[in-house]
Write a protein that binds this DNA or RNA. Structure first.
Length: 237
DNA sequence: AACCTGACCAACCGCCAGCCT
DNA sequence: GAGGCTGGCGGTTGGTCAGGT
């Protein structure tokens, strides 16, 4: 047998934390330090799961956290790191003192992704949309030079849709695709590229970062297979 | 004033490697 | 060694709020 469970999930409180609950965690950590989180609810007098307590402390209560807006430097750092290692939020957050992985993830999803899309850059590959679509055409067996036209031209529906991955055909045949970079990103990326083309993108990313010292073994968001990526984290602030 | 929509973000979910009994 | 829990992680959800109609 292993350890006893940390809590009875059916009988613990969930949802937003109150100031009183926050105070209990702060008081507990101040007197006992950070240790076994499964004991925290019981010792601090909280009807919460230990995991939930740890998350509250890590993401909100830690005294070293910043609660102000991200600076342009931090923004740039996130974009660069995401370009290199993908959505490894905890690793990115470690390069940004006072920020949590949750902060970085939320900021990326709500602000930076849109910002890149508005700039005509694909936030997953960090390449211009035109290049992404050209590569998409190459991977799908379409002529590289005009892959985007193969998607947006409405009067070759039958022939073109045969060349598209199955998941795209229905949308294509209803002329969902028009040449608007943002719309193309939303439709094509979400439905197809993530499963279809990134296995071909990942070797470029791996080789570009190959000679740097920190090693991560991960399933990168760029790759469909497990890969090892080496990255050097030296950023000037 | 009421409703709708989108942005934001705290919190939860589910998975996994490592650890404990 | 097996079974099961912990802690850490990335992805997702849902509540709240502001702005628009």
């Amino acid at each position: 047998m292993g350890r006893p469970p940390c809590c009875d999930k059916a009988n613990v409180k969930r949802g937003p934390w109150t100031a009183e609950e926050d105070a209990k965690i702060l008081a507990y950590v101040a007197s006992h330090g950070i240790g076994n989180w499964t004991l925290v609810p019981q010792k601090a007098g909280l009807n919460r799961c230990g995991k939930s307590c740890r998350l509250r402390w890590t993401n909100y209560l830690r005294p070293d956290l910043k609660h102000d807006n991200f600076t342009p430097q931090e923004e740039e750092c996130i974009i660069e790191l995401h370009k290199t290692i993908g959505s490894r939020w905890s690793l990115i957050a470690k390069q940004l003192p006072g920020r949590t992985d949750n902060d970085v993830k939320n900021y990326w999803n709500t602000k930076l992704k849109k910002k890149l899309v508005n700039m005509g850059i694909d936030p997953v590959t960090h390449k211009p949309f035109a290049q992404v679509f050209a590569e998409y055409g190459k991977i799908s067996g379409l002529p590289i030079q005009n892959a985007r036209n193969h998607i947006c031209l409405p009067n070759n529906t039958t022939e073109i849709s045969k060349q598209l991955p199955f998941s795209l055909r229905e949308n294509y045949s209803t002329q969902k695709y028009t040449w608007d970079p943002k719309a193309q990103y939303q439709v094509i990326h979400e439905e197809t590229l993530q499963t279809h083309s990134f296995s071909e993108v990942s070797p470029l990313i791996s080789s570009a970062t190959y000679f740097n010292p920190t090693v991560f073994s991960s399933s990168s968001s760029y790759a469909s297979v497990q890969s090892q990526v080496q990255v050097n984290f030296t950023y000037d602030h």
